[in-house]
Amino acid sequence: MTIFKTTEVSNPDFESNNLRFITVKSSNLKGRGDICVFVPPNKDLKDAPIITLLHGVYGSAWIWAHKAGVHFTALQMMQEEKIKPMVLAMPSDGLWGDGSAYLPHSDKDFETWITTDVNQAVIENIACTSKTSPLCIAGLSMGGYGALRLGAKYPEIYKGLSGHSSITTKSQMHLFVEEDESSYNQENLSDEDVFLLLQKNKLRLPPFRFDCGKDDILIEQNRRLHQLLKEEHIPHTYQEFEGKHEWSYWQEHIKDTLLFFDSLLD
């Protein structure tokens, strides 16, 4: 039984590079939402893991594939047997302003769109997935904030979390967007901060990692999050690499995320 009023799925005759596109009408978005999906070409694949990749500000469902070539990276890693076959679900954030921050606001629930609708849309339309498919979530910049925040808030949904060059609290959105920061306000202030949510649910968290480039605009915020987690004795992996807040960095270090998730799926 579908939860969507309407669903459109791309025709396999016109697809390329194992990418599929899904558009569903979501009650949480009060309109349509797009998902780009990498489907491994493996035969007889069942219950495949679903890895949700969240984009940053200004982006949409196509950007992980067509600015970072993540589908080529994943396929090569699968062919080299570095990772097991996995489906990559790359949704839009709801396309509000420069970025929704994956928070509920403006009379739309961008949070539940990601944690519920995206998973359901993939399971309904991608034959190699099912309700028993393991779920992981990752993202870059605003998407890293979304991945870490949603994974911390709903630890029962995901088996692993990963963030690249992540915003760590709502107050950093002003560095990237023109919309007023108050648009993102949450009734519960702890819902706006990655650390506070990780702290709140620290006994239930799935394994998580995050990284940042040494010349990234958000490096000090990521170092601060790492320090707070150490002080709170919350297990995690934090890494720094050469690089800035740019696609060449994310194209390279998404590999770390895929390897990390693969290690959790044994």
Score class of each variant (00 low, 15 high):
F241Q: 15
D191N: 07
K230R: 13
F72P: 04
D34A: 11
N42H: 13
H71L: 02
L175F: 05
L19V: 05
A48S: 09
K255V: 13
I157T: 10
V87S: 08
H236T: 08
M77T: 12
D47H: 15
N18R: 09
W62A: 15
L197N: 15
I157V: 10
G94Q: 03
S166T: 08
V177D: 07
M86D: 03
P85Q: 05
L196D: 07
G151N: 04
V57N: 07
Q186K: 00
N18S: 14
F208R: 02
M1A: 13
S27K: 12
L265A: 02
R224K: 14
H226Y: 10
P85R: 01
K153V: 04
L29D: 00
E181N: 10
I254N: 14
T132K: 13
C136A: 13
K230S: 13
A89N: 03
K84F: 12
V194C: 05
M1D: 11
V177F: 11
F176R: 01
A68L: 11
E246I: 12
D193L: 04
T2N: 11
K244C: 02
Q221F: 13
K67E: 06
T169F: 12
R204W: 13
P134A: 06
K153A: 09
V122D: 01
L53D: 04
N42Q: 11
F195S: 07
H55T: 10
H253R: 06
T168E: 06
S263I: 02
S10I: 05
K25S: 15
I217C: 03
E81C: 12
Y154T: 03
T132F: 07
I234V: 05
F4H: 00
I22A: 03
G213S: 06
N188D: 10
S26K: 01
K67I: 04
D193V: 07
P40C: 13
L265M: 08
Y184P: 03
G213T: 07
L228K: 14
V177E: 03
R149E: 08
M1Q: 10
S166K: 05
R209E: 15
G146C: 07
H55S: 14
I83L: 02
V9L: 11
G144M: 00
A89R: 06
W96A: 08
L88D: 02
N28Y: 11
T7F: 03
L29T: 00
E181G: 10
S16V: 06
P91N: 00
E8N: 15
I51G: 08
